[in-house]
């Protein structure tokens, strides 16, 4: 049993919800999303994010448009799709149930 692996799995499960939620208010660049997640200690390195974003985009939960950048190559500007919004609701509900369930179980165990 690899504890690090379990932790990574846990983070991974909620990472998608976090990314989607960050885009709820406003569209964002990948680097903006990274800043938020880094400060929340959800991810450590940027590389982790790109595969996730691509997957969410391929699942039609996200869409993006290109924006010119002064400091380098054009950037992808991500926004939520309708499907993405529904996914947030669904995932949030599941998250709440999960938190409740975990609290209940861990409390009972004590």
């Amino acid at each position: 049993m690899n504890l690090e692996n379990t932790k990574a799995q846990m983070r991974k499960g909620v990472l998608e919800l976090c990314i989607l939620s960050l885009l709820k208010g406003k569209d964002a660049y990948a680097s903006d999303i990274i800043e938020h997640l880094k400060s929340a200690q959800m991810i450590v390195v940027e590389g982790t994010l790109y595969p996730l974003l691509t997957r969410l985009k391929n699942a039609d939960l996200l869409s993006y448009r290109w924006e010119e950048s002064k400091s380098g190559p054009p950037r992808k500007y991500y926004s939520l799709t309708e499907k993405g919004r529904k996914a947030i609701d669904e995932l949030t509900e599941t998250w709440n149930q999960l938190v409740e369930a975990v609290q209940k179980t861990t409390k009972n165990a004590q």
Partner: peptide
């Protein structure tokens, strides 16, 4: 071997280019 692997690599290269520019 990952689905959308090309795109991911492009994104990463873009980001690296951005970081280099800085």
């Amino acid at each position: 071997n990952t689905e959308g692997g090309e795109e991911i690599i492009q994104d990463i290269e873009s980001r690296i280019a951005e970081l280099f520019r800085l």
